[in-house]
Design a protein around this nucleic acid. Sequence first.
DNA 1: CGCCATGTTGATTTCTATCAAATTGAGTGG
DNA 2: CCACTCAATTTGATAGAAATCAACATGGCG
Lengths: 248, 248
Amino acid sequence: MDNSGGFTEPHRHGACGHHVPGDDCRFCSIRRLSVCSALDQDELSFLEGMAGDSVFEEKSTLFREEDESISVYNVTSGVIRLVRSLPDGRRQITGFALPGDFLGLALQKQWKFSAEAVTDVKACRFKRSTFDDFSEQKPHLMKRMHEFATHELSLAQDHMVLLGRLTAEEKIASFLVLMKRRWTRVEGHELGLIRLPMGRQDIADYLGLTIETVSRVINQMQRDRKLVIVPDGIRFIDAAYFEQHAIA
Amino acid sequence: MDNSGGFTEPHRHGACGHHVPGDDCRFCSIRRLSVCSALDQDELSFLEGMAGDSVFEEKSTLFREEDESISVYNVTSGVIRLVRSLPDGRRQITGFALPGDFLGLALQKQWKFSAEAVTDVKACRFKRSTFDDFSEQKPHLMKRMHEFATHELSLAQDHMVLLGRLTAEEKIASFLVLMKRRWTRVEGHELGLIRLPMGRQDIADYLGLTIETVSRVINQMQRDRKLVIVPDGIRFIDAAYFEQHAIA
DNA sequence: CGCCATGTTGATTTCTATCAAATTGAGTGG
DNA sequence: CCACTCAATTTGATAGAAATCAACATGGCG
């Protein structure tokens, strides 16, 4: 849909192949989605010089909320949950980072959320100080970062409406429609399957519900023939129902 | 507390005097809080040349979510609620803008929320296109905008935790502590009174509650001698209780 | 003085959380 | 290949917090 950037993607690895460590930025399949799309060839080469590839395995922690943010990341494959925790163990997932998403928009020393790999994750890593210096010299990169930040802010406002004003059913429907949209964007084409790599507890913590409510609502939707639960996700049967009930 | 910016404030007008139309930026009492603090004297003069003062009376609408954002605003006095509405009338207030706050961080054409004056409001208005051009030429202004955006993002995440995971009592306690902090920052000194210029319905729509629950919880807190309800706001009796129960 | 918006209080319902138990399923080792 | 284990998920029964429905009070203002 927005594949009109003039960038032809090379052959992909696997069903959803993305950037592979050792690859060249020119062949980065999520570049058009990332902050890097603001850069020209020279700048890209320069940035590539200061980039390191990181790999995090499923269930590992990239960083904790109290950690100092020494590095910033450009996610190239996999899914990360961004978590805020309360002292008594309650948690709120403020977002899921997908390929193309950037971690480290804030110019503060401290992460204010922790990042946990939901699946195996690959990311370009930059030293924060180096990246900040570079973006300070490249107004269009700074502008791109700012665009990302304000876009995130708008998504955060959507999410506030969801958390504050939607019913459990509306929350689930909105979540599924959102995930469908996001995967379509990342993969570049629509898939029948809506991937849900995160567990029910993560969905619950994202939507401000309990795991039991998430399970009940999804299974009720299946009984009502609105969707089918499949390995790795769900499939819409009654897409119209979801367009109707999803909000924001 | 953070009044160490070397800027001495002139005599203030009234109990909480702020920028007055016709005033010079040099005498703007909220400049240290605003995006303008990134600017030197020459830049300030230039910006002042393109600024217009706006006044909005209580209950008036600055703009609606579907409106095109032709202007951006720097709030100099008063309180504004930022509202997202659902088709069926449900609404979520995503924030209250106080003096020093900036409306128009996003670089998009469309506001995604509406802004309604809770009290009489004064603001510096800039034509968006002019302001954007200027900030594109002034990396430190762009950086300041980006700092504002990421700060807002962090506040939005706090708010997600509140909406998704706190009880009604914790929501109210957190809200009151937040308002206390924000007013202290704006006014430059602590006040016994915590101003609540917004109505109970606004508080409810901010916290994802109903007006009845807000009323009940606040009045129960008064019965429990945690606070007293006074004209224009509330006063803490048991400050320790609030520090204890407020989260984020 | 009385009007209307705003806020408070009470009774009841409802949605979702909580508590509890059964089921599934992926991974492991015999 | 199949039994076993453990985590994740589903399902059921019940409780509880906040919403809803319904009056009533307050208070600013013409």
